[in-house]
Design a protein around this nucleic acid. Structure first.
Lengths: 119, 119
DNA sequence: TTGCAGTACCTCGAACCCCGAGGTATCGTC
DNA sequence: GACGATACCTCGGGGTTCGAGGTACTGCAA
């Protein structure tokens, strides 16, 4: 019994990449980020909190994000911003992603015609 | 201690997609396919046999591939070809992948500045 | 003939990622 | 004080991929 997920195919380092990207653009707290991803992707990606929070914690532990408490209407929010190392990592992750995309594209499209081999 | 794999980020449905794509272009046996992926991707993807064989078996069990024995120089090879259902699945997987790629691109590039901060 | 590298198949366990469901606490409203 | 929304968090399960290992046959060379 093969169960299908709601996401198109579901990804790997993609959530991490998007988190870094969106936080680099504008510091946010977790709950906000979850909705920002949904909005920015036009509901294509719907990463839940159970996906985002662990990533946030890991990224912070790795020194790629920095969290700071921020009281807002009596509620405490943990706002995350990207560190210098995080920006470096973001650039690397983005370029790695581009490479993967380009390679898949190349395999799928390129080399398709002129295939000798007998059909 | 975060261990990094050799692959850029490592993927999810991508090996499956490439397997279907390459086999649709030309039927192959497993060992050949492993090397074909490496070659076609310019050594960017190096999916081992431990990755490819299980996919092959799963795809066959799902009726997306059909295997046929083929003796060659005393050695028995299991040549896989894509079935009709497999071609349908290939088209779907490819389009799902395109959608993911487009969405990520949109989040990364689009809407970067002038973000009205949502209210 | 023995040994070894290459071909060709396979499986297992570990690592990892993402999801869904659940748990806590506060705030504002009814 | 019950409820829903906000805001944080964790855990377990299912699925995927990786690496290492195991088998068996071929051809070649010592």
């Amino acid at each position: 019994m093969r169960k299908r997920r709601s996401n198109p195919a579901y990804l790997n380092g993609v959530p991490e990449l998007l988190v870094l990207q969106l936080l680099d653009r504008r510091p946010m707290y977790g709950y906000e980020l979850v909705q920002a991803i949904r909005a920015a992707s036009g509901c294509v990606f719907e990463f839940g909190e159970g996906c985002i929070y662990p990533i946030l914690h890991r990224l912070e532990a790795d020194g790629l994000l920095k969290a700071s408490e921020q009281a807002s209407a009596g509620r405490t929010r943990l706002v995350y911003r990207v560190t210098k190392a995080g920006q470096k990592q973001l650039a690397e992750a983005a370029s790695a992603w581009q490479k993967v995309v380009a390679t898949v594209q190349q395999v799928i499209q390129g080399g398709s015609h002129g295939q000798p081999a007998m059909a």
